[in-house]
Amino acid sequence: MAATTIADLPDDIICNILVRIPDIKSIIRCNHVCKMWRKLILQPYFTKSHSSRGSPPLSLMLYHPSDGPPPDPAPFGILIPTKPRHFGILELGNDNLTRFGYKNATVEFEYEIYIDIPREGYKGQVIGACNGLVCLRVDKDIVVCNPILQGRRPFVLPKLPKWAYSRSRLGFGFSPLISDE
C-alpha cells in the first residue's frame, strides 16, 4: 500500500492542521505551497478560527511609527519600527508573555509584520485589531486590512463627520449578530 500523503487528507483536516501553525509568517509561506492551500488560507473562516485560537504565541501587539529619531532608551511599550512609515504588528513569543506586568520589563518580539499604507507623510494611529483584521487611522481615513493579505489594498471606510475626528475616541470590534457566516 502506498504511503499516505497530505493529498489523501480531506480539506477540513488540512485546514485543521494549517490553522494550528502559530505564526503568521509561516502561514503566509504556506500560501505558496500550492493553490489549494492558498484557497483554504484565504477563506474568511481561516482567519477567524486562527485568531480565535488566541493562545500564546499568537498574541498580537500593535505599534505605530514615530517620525522623529527613536527615543533612547526606548520607553517600555513604545517600540521602534525598523522600517519607517509602516505599521507593524508584533507577534510575541511564549517566554515574553510571562514578563508582562513587571516593572521595567523588556519584551523581545519574534516577528514584525508590516502593513504598508502607500501614502506619503501621513499621521497614523492604530485603532484596534479584531478577528485577524487590523483597523488603522491614516490621516483622515479609517482603513481596515488583513495582514495575511498584506499585498492587497486596505479597505477604506467612508469618511466620518468632521466633529468625530476631534471629539471622539475610536474603537474596532466585531458583532456576531450581523456576521455573514
Binding site: N16, I17, V19, R20, I21, S26, R29
Partner: peptide, 11 residues
Amino acid sequence: AQKIADTIKDK
C-alpha cells in the same frame, strides 16, 4: 494535527 502543524512552522 498540532504535530504536523509544528513541522510546517519556520520551514
